[in-house]
């Protein structure tokens, strides 16, 4: 039964991908991309990856759709169909696909517990996490502690993107007053002010979205979730507010300097925990030395870095959104 469901979802996924590439209306393509991400998230859930499903839903279907729409409002809604070397490209693609499919025949079957991938490192994480870290969610333990250095890098990838977008779109800091009439990205947003139903329903949703984000942040050790998902979810809530009441209102609620403070503060908080490890006689990102009991230290460290990740991600995503929205006014 589950297999049939999975096959159905996967087939739909492939069909959506083809439809996205075929359509020449970019708006349609972006909307389909949102559906594609939701299908992907459903697939991840079927494959027992709850944390990843949550993230893909919040980022792929939420944030990236909004960014695409923001860019479309500033550029063009249709692609002009000049396809260069279609048959050559098609040939390359078909041949590579066949090679890839050919290479799958000796891969371990889906779900085979004897596959090498489940033998070496992974069982160690499952065995040792209760003892060394003492939290139920192994994904959070690996993400926050065992491979915490990767996660630090991940935070800095987002921070780099935020710095880059602000630099490229030339958003000046401080003394910034958005015009009250809204802008092109949120024209629909200011229009929504006069649409009672979306506005009332949307407003009702926002507190729950933010609350859910906070729950995901602080419950990440016990259930699916963590700093990144929380940051993305809270950012989505505030973006929804911007779409309903105009970007100016959203900036009034969370001004630009506060966003920048979240980005810098979050990233620095994470780094500071790492440096504290060195200062207290451990190595970089060694949380065991943060408290007398190493397990308590690990839990404390993971909690602090999750807050840092959440702050940096939420601040970065919102700064990026505002950078696109502000561009519409020039």
């Amino acid at each position: 039964m589950v297999i049939l469901f999975a096959v159905f979802l996967l087939t739909l996924l492939a069909l959506t991908a083809v439809a996205i590439v075929r359509t020449e209306n970019l708006f349609v393509a972006v909307m389909l991309t949102g559906i594609f991400s939701l299908l992907m998230a459903a697939n991840f859930f079927v494959l027992d990856a709850a944390d990843v499903a949550l993230t893909e839903a919040a980022v792929g279907a939420g944030i990236s759709t909004v960014l695409f729409l923001g860019a479309l409002a500033l550029t063009a809604e249709h692609e002009r169909s000049v396809v260069s070397g279609r048959w050559l490209s098609m040939g390359i693609v078909v041949v590579t696909t066949l090679i890839l499919i050919y290479a799958t025949f000796d891969k371990p079957r889906l779900g085979d517990p004897r596959a090498p991938v489940h033998q070496h490192v992974a069982p160690w994480y499952l065995d040792q996490t209760p003892e060394l870290i003492g939290i139920p969610n192994v994904v959070t333990a690996v993400l926050g502690s065992f491979r915490g250095y990767d996660t630090l890098g991940e935070v800095f990838v987002v921070v780099t993107a935020c710095i880059g977008v602000l630099f490229i779109l030339g958003v000046r800091r401080g003394g910034y007053s958005p015009s009250p009439d809204g802008d092109r990205l949120t024209t629909a947003g200011s229009g929504l002010r006069h649409h009672l139903i979306p506005k009332v329903v949307g407003r009702l949703l926002i507190p729950f979205i933010v609350l859910f984000g906070l729950y995901v942040l602080f419950h990440g050790e016990y259930g699916p979730g963590g700093g990144f998902q929380a940051g993305a979810i809270i950012a989505t809530g505030i973006i929804l507010y911007a779409l309903l009441d105009g970007e100016a209102q959203a900036l009034k609620a969370v001004p630009r300097p506060v966003l920048m403070g979240m980005v810098v503060g979050g990233a620095t908080l994470y780094g500071a925990v790492g440096v504290a490890g060195i200062a207290l006689g451990g190595s970089f990102l060694d949380y065991s030395v943060l408290a007398d009991d190493p397990v308590k230290g690990q839990q404390l460290g993971i909690l602090i870095i999750e807050v840092g990740v959440g702050l940096a991600v939420c601040g970065s995503l919102l700064s990026i959104f505002h950078a696109f929205a502000a561009r519409g006014r020039h």
Binding site: V52, V59, L143, D150, V157, V158, G164
Partner: peptide
């Protein structure tokens, strides 16, 4: 297996970051 999930959480973040930067350049 928790490890691939951890890696993909990071990869999703990398994907959205690249996308944001690419869109800014397109604008």
């Amino acid at each position: 297996n928790p490890l691939p999930q951890v890696l993909i959480l990071t990869a999703i973040v990398v994907g959205i970051s690249t996308l944001a930067l690419g869109l800014a350049i397109v604008v």
